[in-house]
Design a protein around this nucleic acid. Sequence first.
DNA 1: CGTAGTATTGAAACGGATCAATATCTGTGG
DNA 2: CCACAGATATTGATCCGTTTCAATACTACG
Lengths: 233, 233
Amino acid sequence: MTGGPSIRAVPFSKSTGGIAVRLLSDRHRRQLAAIATRMRVPARTILYREDSPLSWIFFNSEGVVKAFRELPSGKRSIAAFLFQGDIFGLAENGLYVNTTQAVTPVTVYRIPSDLLTDVLRRDPELEFHFLTKVTHELRKAQHRAIVLGRRDAAGRLATFLTMLEKGLLHKTGATSIPVPMSRTDIANYLGLSLEAVSRAARQLTREGIVEFEGRHIAHVVNRARFDTLVAAL
Amino acid sequence: MTGGPSIRAVPFSKSTGGIAVRLLSDRHRRQLAAIATRMRVPARTILYREDSPLSWIFFNSEGVVKAFRELPSGKRSIAAFLFQGDIFGLAENGLYVNTTQAVTPVTVYRIPSDLLTDVLRRDPELEFHFLTKVTHELRKAQHRAIVLGRRDAAGRLATFLTMLEKGLLHKTGATSIPVPMSRTDIANYLGLSLEAVSRAARQLTREGIVEFEGRHIAHVVNRARFDTLVAAL
DNA sequence: CGTAGTATTGAAACGGATCAATATCTGTGG
DNA sequence: CCACAGATATTGATCCGTTTCAATACTACG
């Protein structure tokens, strides 16, 4: 949302989800700006497909992206949602591991992976930022795995809402949580059926814990019970 | 298993799970040897506890370590098993995220985290190795999450055995898979009850897919059906 | 060789998946 | 701006598998 060609919008400049991410120096910004391409794409745009050859690493600057795998059974498993500040482009043996698709209109920075590798190998400080970023993704993945260990659908959904909430920059007193993705996406992320997610949402409403305003905004009505439910891992 | 103080046993020197890990140069080995401490500990030793202050990063050189979190409900969720070549010591805000405990007798290298950080910041090549390692852990975590998305216990267990098998250095023709951890550990990793794991093992046996020799060795009897089951995600 | 932790097996109940029908939303063109 | 159509979501009923509870068997370690 910063106008012009400024690299300020590159996500390194902000904190995400509670960990302190050091700010990029101007030198680093310039370095990245020299090799990055800014892209604005509409929702549903596919950025790359699984098993296609790795060519770019991406930075999400604005909007939400989902990373998923198509399973042999035809089901799809969403590995992660990428928010502002997240990097993505995970590959194995030179092939992307997931397919990534814009959930909302998205602004990303795209850097050729070989160029990025070169820059990183020459600049340990910058590389350290990446190490931090990937470590952060690792924590997110482990956290998701813990959530998937839960049996109860309502608890999983509540925990998911917490994730979304923590991703925000905690506007004080803001009780509304934007839920940009579809129920189907949530189901695929939580390892539940669409119906189970729908029923879980209803249950949270019925019990006076969460209220939904349309399908894309949630309000935590009873914070105490909400927190209890989330903590009841 | 290499005798003496050689740093050769440091895990960077071998490939893990299919990704090509570049060998460490002698210079890098020397650099790490200067700050690393080799430790041999018996099974069940706790290496660090969750929420304790980060002080070391570990390298697993020999044996199996589990990383888990104690959940408020009293259950425990195993985030990962660390095998030969894996690094561990994930922290958030300066506190370890998991508790780690030796499953078998273990040989690890322990490096003070601040020293390691210093070395990495001065050596991009070495740092790149770490980036690769962490990325590898990230893939493992995402893979686990996909497994947890499965509903059927037998499929989860079979997939788990596959993981263990791929971790091996593929001795050609070796049909036996060592299963060093307990059934309870497997249950905590797969998000199943102990009973479900036990029944799943029995089912695999009954259907002539896997045979167990004691509780810590598995043989894949019918590879075709085994692979089908694993692929049936 | 005994004992405590670990694992197996059985029976019952809960909860989510699935199938099916209906409702609501979203984006497109009139 | 409205109407329509396809996609997305809700709700209901039934089925199936895992959890839980409980009793017994095994195994590993001192």
